[in-house]
């Protein structure tokens, strides 16, 4: 099991790093908001994976909260950007 934990951890860290690179580098604010969405989704996957491996369900409400409110950030930024024709 420990092998799988390590592999999954490396893959998820890779994904998170990719998102982080895009947040830092991203030419426009839209790139950054998309990348931060990916970061949130990766964090959700990581929280869920920890639950699955350790066999408990304590963090399911956290996942629900993230699933519910993950939309707020990107929608508000998208609205703001499309009304203000800038980067």
């Amino acid at each position: 099991m420990i092998v799988i934990v390590v592999i999954a951890g490396i893959l998820m860290a890779g994904g998170a790093l990719g998102a982080l690179w895009r947040i830092v580098k991203g030419p426009s604010a839209l790139d950054r908001i998309i990348a931060s969405d990916v970061l949130v989704a990766t964090a959700m996957c990581a929280i869920g994976a920890e639950m699955a491996i350790n066999r408990h369900t304590d963090n399911l409400p956290v996942l629900l909260g993230l699933a519910l409110f993950g939309i707020v950030g990107s929608v508000s930024v998208a609205r703001f950007i499309s009304s203000r024709d800038e980067t």
Binding site: I4, I7, A8, G9, L11, M12, G14, G15, A16, L17, G18, A19, W21, R22, S28, L30, D31, I34, A35, V38, A41, T42, C45, A46, G48, A49, A52, I53
Partner: peptide, 24 residues
Amino acid sequence: VLLAALMCFAAGVGLVRFPDVLSR
């Protein structure tokens, strides 16, 4: 878990490699 980790990794790589906002 490995499947999910692979998907997260693919998303990160796609963010880095894809050329414009719509592809990302």
